[in-house]
């Protein structure tokens, strides 16, 4: 079931939550809406679900206009950040809810409901918890039950609002891999909202990066990471170092080093972004190297993060693998040269 979002706008008072959004979700795709809080990603998801009505625009499910269809008839599965399980029902009854509330004519028999619920609980690998109450489950288990409940009504699309947001890091990682495998198994068109770029890049087929109610970029995880369309996308998808400079003859100068800025107009203000792990350290000066001095060294598990002071600029962060750090025998207070392997130059900001 494909989803088409056409010119959707939504305003809350003076706040423009969604500003003319156009987006297509292909059938069977797992799409991530990624952005900082307040960027409109949750509003967009709720508009798709029918929990929020847009001020303008249309939502089409498989070419059919559903903009004015009530959430009850829209056949969407919605998974909430805080699970929203029914506390007074057992796990079994929670999953069975969507089947039991059907009108008599279309309601399956008790035996069919039982069979279906157990099949779904097996799918989320929690069949053994059928008689428990939500209060007796862990967060990860609750979210899997919430997912089973949403799938019970055989939704045309599955919508997940920060599904792993309330879980701790380890469970979150486990669960998102599990969600990816589950999606490969059942292939229901899914949209999930997250503010965690790692989660979006790992799980989604395509990522939509949003900011201030607008879409900044749509693309596969490698597209958005490798060729960010805007400085916002670049800085949102990972750590960055930022330099301000001006372009001269196709070169931008940063603390004595020259960085290629072809296609940029002369004398334009340039902002240069470099990721910490895309900088090499050297003790030998070269034309493209920036001079600096190591001020801090922090060990972060598999990587080492060094802080380097550069004249006239903010301190630069450099990330090295453990081995590279050991090979170089870098020390605090040492003068070094920074060689950016890859730098993005944005002008006209």
């Amino acid at each position: 079931m494909s989803i088409e979002i056409k010119n959707i706008s939504k305003q809350f008072g003076d706040f423009k939550a969604l500003d003319n959004i156009n987006l297509e979700v292909a059938s069977g795709e797992l799409l991530a809406l990624l952005g900082p809080s307040g960027c409109g990603k949750t509003s967009l998801l709720r508009v798709i679900a029918g929990l929020e009505t847009p001020d303008n625009g249309q939502i089409l499910f498989h070419g059919e206009d559903t903009t004015d269809t009530h959430v009850r008839e829209r056949q969407v599965g919605f998974v909430f950040q805080h699970y929203a399980l029914f506390r007074h029902m057992t796990v079994f009854e929670n999953v069975a809810f969507g089947l039991r509330v059907r009108p008599k004519k279309t309601r399956p028999s008790d035996a069919e409901i039982r069979k279906k619920v157990h099949r779904l609980l097996e799918l989320v690998q929690l069949d053994w918890l059928a008689d428990r109450f939500p209060a007796q489950l862990s967060g990860g288990q609750r979210q899997r039950i919430a997912l089973a409940r949403a799938l019970a009504v055989e939704p045309r699309v599955l919508l997940l609002d920060e599904p792993f947001g309330a879980l701790d890091t380890k469970v979150r990682k486990e669960l998102r891999r599990w969600l990816r495998r589950l999606h490969d198994e059942i292939h229901v068109t899914s949209v999930f909202v997250t503010h965690d770029q790692e989660e979006a890049l790992e799980v989604a087929d395509r990522v939509v990066v949003m900011n201030k109610g607008q879409i900044e970029q749509i693309g596969t995880p490698s597209q958005v990471y490798d060729t960010p369309a805007s400085p916002f996308v670049y800085q949102f998808l990972g750590d960055i170092n930022l330099f301000h400079s001006r372009v001269h003859d196709g070169w931008a100068e940063v603390a004595g080093a020259r960085i290629a800025a072809t296609d940029s107009p002369d004398a334009a203000k340039a902002t240069i972004y470099v990721r910490p792990h895309e900088i090499d350290l050297s003790r030998v000066a070269s034309e493209a190297a920036i001079a600096g001095k190591i001020t801090h060294v922090r060990l972060l598990g598999s990587t080492v993060r060094l802080e380097v002071d550069v004249a006239d600029h903010d301190a630069v962060e450099v990330e090295l693998t453990r081995e590279r750090y050991a090979e170089g025998e870098w020390k605090v207070g040492e003068a070094v040269w920074l060689n950016p392997r890859d730098a993005k130059v944005y002008t006209g900001l």
Binding site: G50, F78, H82, A84, F86, H88, F97, G98, V101, R149
Partner: peptide, 26 residues
């Protein structure tokens, strides 16, 4: 939480069903 009612609604429950099966027991 309003999410409880939203969840029930997205699962196809009518307003009356939401009241009887979700709100009242809570």
């Amino acid at each position: 939480e309003p999410e409880l009612e939203e969840a029930a609604s997205s699962l196809g429950a009518t307003r009356l069903q939401i009241f009887w099966k979700v709100i009242l027991p809570t």
